[in-house]
Design a protein around this nucleic acid. Structure first.
Length: 855
RNA sequence: GCCCGCUUGGCGGAACUGGUAGACGCACGGGACUUAAAAUCCCGAGGCCCGGAAGGGCCGUCCCGGUUCGAGUCCGGGAGCGGGCACCA
C-alpha cells in the first residue's frame, strides 16, 4: 500500500505545527541547564546559498539533539544587515539601501523557515534596525568613557575615485576593488577601539579554550604576535635627542653597524624639514603601501641622514643613521638598529651601502677565527663572541645579561611587543551605524547626549555622486553643540560592520531590552555553548568579539571573559566547474552529461570540466538551495549536507548525492510505514527478547542509539548518518516478525530509528512518529536511553595473527578465560598451518581485541 | 621566507587511546519484478595469483627508514597538495 511520501505537504504541515505550538521559543529558566547554539548570522544578500544550508543544518542538528537531551536551548537567528552591497544596489538600481535590505531579509527569512530550523524567531534582530544600532551607540559611548575608544590621525587606503577609505582586504594589487584606481595613502582622523589593551589576555586565554579548533587558536596567536625584546636608546651625536629602537635580539647589540628610521618616523620628518634630499627620499617611499607585489620585489633602500648615533655600550662607537624604506612605523618604535651578521634584511642593506658586518653569534661547531658572513645572515642559536661581557653566553643568557646592563645604565629596558594594532572602525559610508559624536570648534569632540540617542540615519540621501552620502546631506550633520550650543557638526562616519557582529550574540539573550543587554538574561545564557561558522572569520570577527566581551565586561555590562565556549568551523560547499570553448564559465544548469563522464552545453557544444571549487558567482558553479528544497524537500537537503564529508572538511555538491539522499528519505518512510502492518499496538508489552532474532535487532537498535548520540556530541555527523543507514539496513533485513517478542522488538527499533533521524530530518521523523501512533510531537520527546546490557556484546569475533599476519578468526564469549582462548587459537587449522610445525615462542592475548602467535 | 594542516579503493569517507584496513554512502556490474522503462528489492566488488568450488596465498593506507609481538595510527627523513602570515627588527 505504501504510497510515496509527500514531502511538500508534510514539511509545510509540521513547520506550521511547530510554529503554532511555539516549540522553539526559549525562556530564561535558571532551574534548567541551558544550551546556547548559534550559527554565524547571515548577511542579507538576497537569497540563501549552500554555505548557509550547511551551516544552519549543523546548528539545527545540535539544537534539536540538545533539546531532546533535556537542555533549555537558545537557538536564535538575525541579520548582519549593514554593509556596502546595499549602497552598491542603491547606486546601480536606484533602490534605497533600507528597502533593498529589508526585502532581502523577507525573502531569506522565508527560505530559512522552509528548512525547518528549530529557531526562536521571536528573537530575530537586524543590525540595521534602530532598535539594534541605538544600543551599539550606547556601547560606543561607554567605550569612549573608559578610553577604550579614541580618535587619532592614521594612514589609510584612500580610493581617489570613490572618495572613500578602503579596508586592506578591498585593495587588490594596489588598486581599489570597485574603481580600479591606484590607492593612495592618506592621513585621516579615525576612530579606534583599543583592542591592544587586551593583547596579553586575548593571547593567554587561547591556551584555555579546549573546544576551539587548534588552527583558529594558532591563527589568532600569530595575529596577536607577541614578541619579547628590548627598547634601547641611542643618543644622537651633537644634540640631546635620543633614538629609541626596538629589537628582539638585544644579544646582537655589539654587532650593530647602523641605525635606521622609518620614513614615517617623526624624526624623519624633522630631518626632511631641513634636507630636501631626505624629503624626496621619503616621498619616494610613500607608494610602498600594502601591495604584496611591491613588497616582495622592493629593494632595501636607504638615505644617509649624515647624523650619527652613539652605541650605548661601546664607548666612542658612532653609527650612521639612515632613513630606510623597509622599516615600518607601526611596529615597535619605528626605528631599528641594524646587525647585518644576524638579520638578512640588515645584511642586504649593509652590503648595498658598504656598512660593517661583525659576527657576534658563533654557530655551534664553527671556528671563531675563520667564521665569516657573506650573503647569508646567521639567524640561529650559538654562542656570543666579539661582545665583551657577553662572550661565551648562549643567545637567551646573553639577552638577559645585556638587558640587565642596559637597565642599570638607564639606556634601555626589556619590553614585550605585539603585532596586534588598534581597530580602526571609521568608515566613510552611509549604510552603517552612525558614530554618536559631534565636533565643535570650541569644545572639540563631544559625545552625543545619551538621552537623545539614537542618532538615526537620515532616509533622504542620494547616491548620485561619489563619497559619503551622510556628508553630502544638506542638513543632517548640522547640529548645535550639546556642550556650548553653538553650531557644530556631526561625525559623518559610520562604524565598521564588524562592530555590529561583535555583540549580536549578547543581544540575542534579551533582544527587546531597553538597555544593550539585560543582565539576568546574559548571565543565564552566555557564553555561547556552541558557535558554528566559516573558517574565514578565524581572526577578524572572532577576535573582535572576544575584544568586545572584555570591553563590555569592563564597562559593567556582563561578567564573562569569553563569548564562545565552543567553536566549530565548517568546510566549504564545492562544485565542479564548467567552461565552454571560449573559456567562459557555465552554470550547472547550462550543461548536461554525455555518456562517459563528459559534458556538453544544452546546444551540444563541447564543455571543459574544471576543478572542484568553492561555489561562487564568479565561477558560476552555484546551486540554488531554494530550487533543491522545492524539488526534494528540506529533509533531503539537510541529510545530504550531513552525509559523507566530515563537517569541518569541504563538501562536494553532486546531483547523484542529492538524489541518493532523496531515495533514502523515501526508503525510511516506506520502511516504517510497511512495518506498521506488523507492529503491536503502542505499549502492548515491554520489548522482551526471547528469540535470537529479536535480541539481535534490539542490540543493533541500542548500539545505534548509543553511537549516534556520541557522534552528534562530537560533531561527527557523517558517522551518525552511517549508523542510521546501518540500523535501517538491519530493520530491512529483519523482515516480518514471527512472534510477539519480535513484534515489540521491531516497534522498538523503528521508534529508535525515528528518534535518531529527528535532529537531521525533523519533518520525516515527526510524520513517522505520528504514524507510529503517538499523539505527542516528537520535538517534545526526550532522547531515549540506550540499554547498556544490550550494547555490550556477548559473543565476539577475535582475529588470530601468526607473526603479525592475520590467519584466522574465532568466535568466543566476551568473558572467556585467556587460557581457553589461547588453546582454541593454537588449535585452529589455519594457525597450525601457518606455524609450519614450529612451537610458539610467545602468545599475546589482548582481551577482546586480538591474539598474536609468535613463532 | 615563516607557521600550520592534509595525503586510505573509481569517488566521499570509516577504523575511539597502536590490535580484523576499506564501515556507510555514491558511482559501477549481475540478477529479480515489469510487455518495457522508471521506481523498488537481492547479490557482487582494493589489486594480483592458485582453485571447478569451498577455500587459500601474495601485495596494499604518498615514498624511504625506525620503534613494536603487531603501525593507516608512534618516531626520523623526504615528496606532493592545501591554508594562514609575511620588509614585524
Amino acid at each position: 500500500m505504501s504510497q510515496r511520501y509527500n514531502v511538500k505537504e508534510t514539511e509545510a504541515k509540521w513547520q506550521a505545527a511547530w510554529r503554532d505550538a511555539s516549540c522553539f521559543a526559549a525562556a530564561d529558566d535558571p532551574d534548567k541547564p541551558k544550551y546556547y547554539v548559534l550559527e554565524m548570522f547571515p548577511y542579507p544578500s538576497g537569497r540563501i546559498h549552500m554555505g548557509h544550508v550547511r551551516n544552519y543544518t549543523m546548528g539545527d542538528v545540535v539544537a534539536r539533539y540538545k533539546r531532546a537531551r533535556g537542555f533549555n536551548v537558545l537557538h536564535p537567528m538575525g541579520w548582519d544587515a549593514f554593509g556596502l552591497p546595499a549602497e552598491n544596489a542603491a547606486m546601480e538600481k536606484g533602490v534605497h539601501p533600507a528597502k533593498w535590505t529589508y526585502e532581502n531579509i523577507a525573502v531569506m527569512r522565508g527560505q530559512l523557515q522552509g528548512m525547518g530550523l528549530s529557531l526562536d524567531w521571536d528573537r530575530e534582530i537586524a543590525t540595521c534596525h534602530p532598535d539594534y544600532y541605538r544600543h551599539e551607540q550606547v556601547l560606543f559611548l561607554d567605550f569612549l568613557e573608559q578610553e577604550l575608544a579614541y580618535r587619532k590621525e592614521s594612514w589609510v587606503n584612500w580610493d581617489p575615485v570613490d572618495q572613500t577609505v578602503l579596508a586592506n582586504e578591498q585593495v587588490i594589487d594596489g588598486r581599489g576593488w570597485r574603481s580600479g584606481a591606484p590607492v593612495e595613502r592618506r592621513k585621516l582622523a579615525q576612530w579606534f577601539f583599543r583592542i591592544t589593551a587586551y593583547s596579553e589576555s586575548l593571547l593567554e586565554r587561547l591556551e584555555d579554550m579546549p573546544r576551539w579548533p587548534e588552527k583558529v587558536r594558532l591563527m589568532q596567536a600569530n595575529w596577536i604576535g607577541r614578541s619579547e625584546g628590548a627598547e634601547i636608546d641611542f643618543p644622537v651625536i651633537g644634540d640631546d635627542r635620543k633614538l629609541k629602537v626596538f629589537t628582539t635580539r638585544p644579544d646582537t647589540l655589539f654587532g650593530a653597524s647602523f641605525c635606521a628610521l622609518s620614513p614615517h618616523h617623526p624624526m624623519s620628518a624633522q630631518i626632511a624639514a631641513g634636507d630636501p634630499e631626505a624629503a624626496a627620499f621619503i616621498a619616494e617611499c610613500h607608494p610602498l603601501g600594502t601591495s604584496e607585489e611591491v613588497i616582495a620585489t622592493a629593494e632595501k633602500r636607504g638615505y644617509d641622514t649624515g647624523l650619527k648615533v652613539r652605541h650605548p655600550l661601546v664607548e666612542d662607537l658612532e653609527l650612521p643613521l639612515y632613513i630606510a624604506n623597509f622599516v615600518l612605523m607601526d611596529y615597535g618604535t619605528g626605528a631599528i638598529f641594524g646587525c647585518p651578521a644576524h638579520d638578512q634584511r640588515d645584511l642586504d642593506f649593509a652590503n648595498r651601502y658598504g656598512l660593517g658586518v661583525i659576527p657576534v653569534i658563533l654557530p655551534e661547531g664553527a671556528d671563531a677565527t675563520s667564521f665569516r658572513i657573506e650573503d647569508e645572515a646567521f639567524v640561529g642559536d650559538g654562542v656570543a663572541i666579539n661582545s665583551e661581557f657577553l662572550d661565551g653566553l648562549g643567545v637567551e643568557d646573553a639577552k638577559r645579561r645585556v638587558i640587565a646592563r642596559l637597565e642599570e645604565l638607564g639606556s634601555g629596558n626589556g619590553v614585550v611587543q605585539f603585532r596586534l594594532r588598534d581597530w580602526g572602525i571609521s568608515r566613510q559610508r552611509y549604510w552603517g551605524c552612525p558614530i554618536p559624536v559631534i565636533h565643535c570648534a570650541d569644545c572639540g569632540t563631544v559625545p552625543v547626549p545619551r538621552e537623545t540617542l539614537p542618532v538615526l540615519l537620515p532616509d533622504d540621501v542620494t547616491f548620485d555622486k561619489p563619497g559619503n552620502p551622510l556628508d553630502h546631506h544638506p542638513s543632517w550633520k548640522q547640529v548645535a553643540c550639546p556642550s556650548c550650543g553653538k553650531a557644530a557638526l556631526r561625525d559623518t562616519d559610520t562604524m565598521d560592520t564588524f562592530v555590529d557582529s561583535s555583540w549580536y550574540f549578547a543581544r540575542f539573550c534579551s533582544p527587546r531590552s531597553d538597555a544593550p543587554i539585560a543582565r539576568a538574561a546574559v548571565d543565564y545564557w552566555l557564553p555561547v555553548d556552541q558557535y558554528i561558522g566559516g573558517i574565514e572569520h578565524a581572526v577578524l570577527h572572532l577576535l573582535y568579539s572576544r575584544f568586545f566581551i572584555r570591553a563590555m565586561r569592563d564597562c559593567g555590562h556582563l561578567a564573562i571573559d569569553e563569548p564562545f565556549a565552543g567553536l566549530f568551523t565548517q568546510g566549504m560547499v564545492c562544485h565542479r566547474t564548467y567552461q565552454d570553448a571560449e573559456g567562459r564559465w557555465l552554470t550547472p544548469t547550462d550543461v548536461r552529461p554525455v555518456g562517459d563522464g563528459g559534458f556538453e552545453t544544452l546546444e551540444g557544444q563541447p564543455v571543459t570540466l574544471g576543478r572542484v571549487e568553492k561555489m561562487s558567482k564568479s565561477k558560476k558553479n552555484t546551486v540554488d538551495p531554494a530550487a533543491i528544497i522545492e524539488e526534494y524537500g528540506a529533509d533531503t537537503a539537510r541529510w545530504f549536507m550531513l552525509s559523507d564529508s566530515p563537517p569541518d572538511r569541504d563538501l562536494e555538491w553532486t546531483d547523484e548525492g542529492i538524489a541518493g539522499a532523496y531515495r533514502f528519505v523515501q526508503r525510511l518512510w516506506r520502511q516504517v510505514v510497511e512495518a506498521l502492518d506488523h507492529l503491536p499496538e503502542r505499549g502492548a508489552g515491554a520489548p522482551g527478547a526471547n528469540s535470537a532474532r529479536a535480541l539481535a535487532l534490539r542490540r543493533s537498535a541500542h548500539g545505534a542509539l548509543r553511537s549516534v548520540g556520541e557522534d552528534i556530541d562530537q560533531f561527527r555527523f557523517n558517522r551518525a548518518v552511517a549508523r542510521i543507514h546501518e540500523l535501517s539496513n538491519e530493520i530491512a533485513g529483519f523482515g516480518a516478525p514471527e512472534a510477539a517478542d519480535e513484534g515489540s522488538a521491531l516497534r522498538e527499533a523503528c521508534e529508535i530509528l525515528v528518534h535518531l533521524m529527528n535532529p537531521m530530518m525533523p519533518h520525516l521523523a515527526e510524520e513517522l512518529w505520528q504514524q507510529l501512533g503517538h499523539e505527542t510531537m516528537l520535538v517534545q520527546e526526550a532522547w531515549p536511553q540506550a540499554d547498556e546490557a544490550l550494547t555490550a556484546q556477548a559473543l565476539i569475533t577475535l582475529p588470530i595473527q601468526v607473526n603479525g599476519k592475520k590467519r584466522a578468526t574465532i568466535d568466543v564469549e566476551a568473558d572467556a578465560p585467556e587460557d581457553r582462548i589461547r588453546e582454541e587459537a593454537l588449535a585452529h587449522p589455519n594457525v597450525v598451518r601457518a606455524m609450519e610445525g614450529k612451537s610458539p615462542r610467545n602468545v599475546i592475548v589482548v582481551p577482546k581485541r586480538i591474539i598474536n602467535v609468535v613463532v
